[in-house]
Every structure is written in C-alpha cells, then in structure tokens.
Design a protein around this nucleic acid. Sequence first.
DNA 1: CTGAAAGCGCTTACAG
DNA 2: CTGAAAGCGCTTACAG
Lengths: 346, 346
Amino acid sequence: MAADETAPAPRGKVTITEIARRAGVSVPTVSRVVNGRSDVSPATRARVEDLLRLHGYRKRSAALPSRAALLDLVFNDLDSPWAVEIIRGVEEAAHAAGAGTVVSAIHGRSGDAGEWMRNLRARASDGVILVTSALEPPLHEQLRILGVPLVVVDPMGSPAFDTPTIGAANWSGGLAATEHLLSLGHRRIGLIAGPPRLLCSRARFDGYRAALEAAGVAIDASLVVPGDFHPESGFTGCNTLLDLPEPPTALFAASDQMALGAIEALRRRGLRVPEDMSVVGFDDLPEVRWSAPPLTTIRQPLADMGQLAVRTVLRLARGERPDSPRVELGTELVVRASTAPPAPVL
Amino acid sequence: MAADETAPAPRGKVTITEIARRAGVSVPTVSRVVNGRSDVSPATRARVEDLLRLHGYRKRSAALPSRAALLDLVFNDLDSPWAVEIIRGVEEAAHAAGAGTVVSAIHGRSGDAGEWMRNLRARASDGVILVTSALEPPLHEQLRILGVPLVVVDPMGSPAFDTPTIGAANWSGGLAATEHLLSLGHRRIGLIAGPPRLLCSRARFDGYRAALEAAGVAIDASLVVPGDFHPESGFTGCNTLLDLPEPPTALFAASDQMALGAIEALRRRGLRVPEDMSVVGFDDLPEVRWSAPPLTTIRQPLADMGQLAVRTVLRLARGERPDSPRVELGTELVVRASTAPPAPVL
DNA sequence: CTGAAAGCGCTTACAG
DNA sequence: CTGAAAGCGCTTACAG
C-alpha cells in the first residue's frame, strides 16, 4: 500500500519544494511566504501558511544539515532572583535534549518585541518558553505561522490561545501558608498581596481567604495591603500594617522578596521575628534559607517548572500533543525560623 | 592599484571556495577540514586551518544569508546567585548588538565539555564568554581552530593563552573592606577566605593583609579561616572564629553568601550585628540590600563585566584587537548597617 | 502577483 | 588522501 500522499511529512523534515508541490505553487513563492515578503497574494499566502504550519516546516539548508536545536527562554526582566532558578531548570533539560538555551529579556518595551521576533526568526529557534510575559497576541500569531511552538510558564492570565501553560499550585500555597499561621494560634494575619492583574497573585490571595474562612476567622480588609513582589513594597506594606490601630501578629507575604522587605521594616522598629511578628513568604528562593531568621515559606518548584516547559515545547516541536494543556506543579510549606505562636497578651 | 590578493577578506565574509583557492586545494577538502573529518592529511589540514583562522571563516549558507549572531555564555554551575547578574549584563549588551545569548553550564564534568563543543559547533556560535570556568586547554585550542573568539570573565588563574580576561579589582576590594573596619576602630578582624586556587580569593586575601600591615596591626593566622564562597562555609567559619579564646570583633567574608552564613551563626548564638560583631561581605548581590541587617559589602560590577565581555568578543569576532587583554573593573565599598565601631570593653 | 532560470555555499557519494 | 561531478535547500534577479 502506497504512503498516504496527503499525510503530513515528519515534523521539521519537510522542504519548501515539498510545500510548493502540495500548494500547487512554485518554490520561489513559498520562499517569499516563509520570509514574510509582501509581494504574495493574500489567498496564496494563506494556503501556503496553512501547509507550512501543518507540516511543521523549519527553514533548513543543504549546507547546515543538522543544525543544533535552539530554545528561546524569554523573561520580561532579568532582575528577578527567581529567573536564575528557571534558567537552571531549562538549561538542564535543554542540554539533556541536545538543545541550546537562548535567554532574553524583552523589558516590556513592545518595540523590542518586534525586533526580538526578527532575531528569533533569524536564528531559527525551535521553540519558545515565555515566563510571566505579556507577548502580544499578534506575536503569538506570528509564532504560529512560523510553526514555532510556544509554552508559557507562570501565566499572567488565562491565555485565550491554545498555548500550554505551566504554573504552580498558587491557591494551595496561599492556603497552606495561612493554615500554618492559624495552626500556630494567629488570628490577625496580614497579607501583602501581589499585583492583582497576575493570575498567581489572585490565586494566592484566594488561598489566604479560603483558609481564614474555613477557620471561621472574619476577613478584615484593612489587613490586606497591595505589593508588587519587590522588597520595597514589602517594606512599605509592612509599615502600613504596623501603623494599624490593631496590627496583625503574623503576616503572609506573597513573595519571598516582599517578606524580606517586611522583615527589614520590623527590624527598623526594633521588632523581632518571630517573637513579635511571624512572617511567611512565597517562592523559597535559595537565599531565604540564610535570611535572618531563616524564612518559613511556600516552596515553588521553579527549576522543575522550567524542565517541564522544555519537555513540553520539545513535544510540540515533534508534532505531538502535550499531556495536558494546563499543568500546575505542587507547592509545599517549608517551616523555618520566621514563624512561631503569637506572643501571649499581657 | 589592484586589491592585495593575500590580504584577509573581511571577517566572517569568506567562503570555503575562497579558502580552497588560497590553499590550493579543492572545495570538498576544505569542507572536510571544517567539519573535522579524519580523512585529510595532517599537512593539508594544518594549512587549511591556518587560512580558516586567518580569515575568520564562519560557516554560512546561501539559504540562511544573514544568520543572527549567537554568543555562548558558559558557567560552571548555574546555582550561583551572581550568575543572574552576569547574564543580565551579557544579555543586554548582546541584544543591543543584535546577538542572542546562549546560556549553558558545564557542571565541571569534562565529558560534558566535549559534547558542549559539538553543540557550539553545530549552532555556529560567534563567540564564547567563559565565567570562572576551567575549560581545558585542548578545548581552547579547538575554539582557536574554529576561529571562535573567547573571553574569560573572573579568571580562575592567569590563563596561559592569549585570551582576554575581565575581572574585578579584588585586591583593592579586600583592602577597602579591611580599611573600613580598621577606620571604625576594629583591631581583631577575622577573614573568611575563598578557595585559594582561585585568583580572586588570593587577591582579596592579600588586600586584607595589606590593609592590616599598613595599619601596623600584626597578622594573626588564627583569624583567617577557609571558605568556599557558599553560605555553609561562612556559617562554620564564623563558628570557628567565635570559638577562639579571643574572638575577633569584626569579620570580612570574601563573598556575600559567606557573610550571610556568618550572620546566621551569630544569630544562633544570640549575638547581634553590628553591636556584637561587624560583618562586611563581597559582591553586593541585589539581595543583601535586604538582609537583616542590610549588609556592608564590596560592590563588584558584575553586569558591567558581562557587558564589557560582550563588547570584547564582538571586537575579536570582527578581527579587531581588544583595547587591553587584561581588564579589571573597579570595586567599591557600600556601607550599610552591618558594620559599626567595636563594643567598648567593660 | 507569479514562475522559469541561474546561482549561492556547502555536502555527499564516487573514483582514483 | 584528494578532486570532479552531482546534488541539496534555498534565494535572487528577471520577465511577464
């Protein structure tokens, strides 16, 4: 029995000659579409793009027969200390698969995004891993056309696209952090929240609320202050809580960095952790094992998330479906020295 | 006047056809040398390799006419918190030059190094930046043959090769840290040193010694304890110093991480920083602004070092000579809250 | 807007 | 160990 003529060729193995034959156009025309030139009729372009996508076309060359695979890992900014954790996981898994990891930051500047896209195309990247990043919808679309698979780590919102996402169990983490403080006997528990536009912030907040509700503790809106995950906001947030007529006896910071900022605010006032205030963070950055005192926090498996992201893009690149389009990796309470029962009321 | 036939063509623009003509061999032969095949006579190979190097040959293709530049940034391990600082500087400068940054870790495993070399070749990297990394001499040689420029950041020792290196003013930093403590009135100053096989450790140690000598303070060998830059070694090193019959009143840790470990050792004994012990670190990692207390330290311009490394490889890639083969960027004392005059003797 | 033709840089059998 | 020949995937004028 002859091979099915209409079946897609193996991913990444198809040539423009093959695509041209199937589309019923010439090789130069396909070349023009691939290179994004303007002198192609919309109808032809659409037909060719469909075929390109269907067959997972990747630009190759007789000269460079087996180009090493390249994965793009894209951050908004590289100043976040958990970036290195994700890089570590991604590099490890990519290396194991024989792929190189191209790290970049787009700095939120949308002008950069277009340039980044050109670079991506020029280096013929085999897959893109986006971290908490708002890559605009038109760029998603361009990646689709180029046939470059995409996965999002720590999604900002629920992507409207058929893009796999990998996150952490943020709600469970918020719940566990708050339950831990409740179990120590705290009833007035402050929250320094993350930016509400981020999905992970809302989930952590809801976990906090759910734990309080389950314990029958009324939610006091004045105990919830906004933050942006950076230490400065933890510092000011903690000061706001301490200036309350009736301050909390414990606080949950939605990031380790904010927890560190909060501890500094306490130290400046001569308050001790955990004797005067218990603090729990979120992330378990390597450095908080060595903060003073060592921080009780919610461990987020950043390196594992990076590894899973690599396996998922690679799967996509081979034309396979991911196991699941939305994955949440488990979080875990790590108890160290920054939490204790509340001081007895004298 | 005709163009000089023997002059090298512009870097990166030469083809194997051109090299073949100059070497007086056929195009396939050059192709074999470029791809490291074994079936070429040593004499022919040597002649072709010389020409390849001289002209800065880079593999290209008619199909991929202007491949995006790619720079390889190589760490021993990605677990160091200052890795992200260097990545940030490198990514920024590389991005500005339109190049992608491939980050990898070779984990000291020498088996990995060979594989990494193959990947580097396959992805046709345009330059390599090595960070505190022992890339074995044979690999240096391979890079030379491939014509891939190399620069070393924070060199482990004095490289025996004609490789540009970029470091920090470690000796001056060690001097400044110690002078700061002396100026506060400390006379018994402990040192938690870095691994002596590293150039930077020895320079920091010598700076410490020079400052003490200049102040007429005798060096007490029992006040110098070994460390490996990680927090654990700062923790145990500090305990060793505290168990001395006459402990120091201040200590200089040759890395921020060791300083954090030392502070934790002090905290566990109920000793306060800086009241009972002054501590100064080295690096100025972003996180130590938020340690408890905020750490006095020596700022090492890691991101700037990364940026300079990029400019230097790129220069090399264009066939230009670097401004200077050995560069040391300035370090700077940053005074925060972990240092104070010694407690008055009662 | 499209294709036939020429050409690019490189590689792979093949023959010696 | 080496080269003449054929071929690869892709692109670039050029003509219509």
